[in-house]
């Protein structure tokens, strides 16, 4: 069975909290995983005595275990990939819909029309 690195949603209504887990792909989201390798708190917070407008999100990650699981072929989901790439466990990957770059205006002199 495929082993995945994915997020398991805990917390309460409107206050999510995720465990970063290594689990078999076909098991339920919040079932007991093979291993918990970290957490991700998606709610932005300000430092207690810092600027209240500068917000941060906390990620706890066991980088060594993450490297190990990636090394033995665990497949991160897109979200997990983004988190792991921030911890430089994996290279960056463009995830989701990519915005198309607008075409440059055509220079009439450089175009040959037969």
């Amino acid at each position: 069975m495929v082993v995945k690195i994915r997020l398991a949603r805990f917390g309460r209504r409107n206050s999510p909290f995720y465990n970063i887990v290594v689990a078999h792909a076909r098991t339920a989201r919040n079932s007991k995983p093979i291993e918990v390798i970290g957490t991700y708190d998606p709610i932005p917070k300000a430092d207690p005595y810092g600027n209240p407008k500068e917000l941060h999100k906390d990620i706890n990650l066991d980088v060594d275990r993450a490297r190990y699981w990636v090394g033995v072929g665990a497949q991160p989901t897109d979200t997990a990939w983004r988190i792991l790439s921030m911890a430089s466990v994996l290279p960056k990957k463009m995830v989701g819909l990519q915005r198309e770059k607008p075409l440059k205006p055509i220079d009439a002199n450089s175009v040959k029309i037969h």
């Binding site: 918990v36 917000l55 906390d58 990650l61 066991d62």
Partner: peptide, 17 residues
């Protein structure tokens, strides 16, 4: 490890699971 991404800063803390 701190990383500014968009509006928020991500703080990745290493720990031993």
């Amino acid at each position: 490890k701190k990383q500014q991404k968009g509006r928020f800063e991500f703080r990745i803390k290493r720990y031993n699971s």
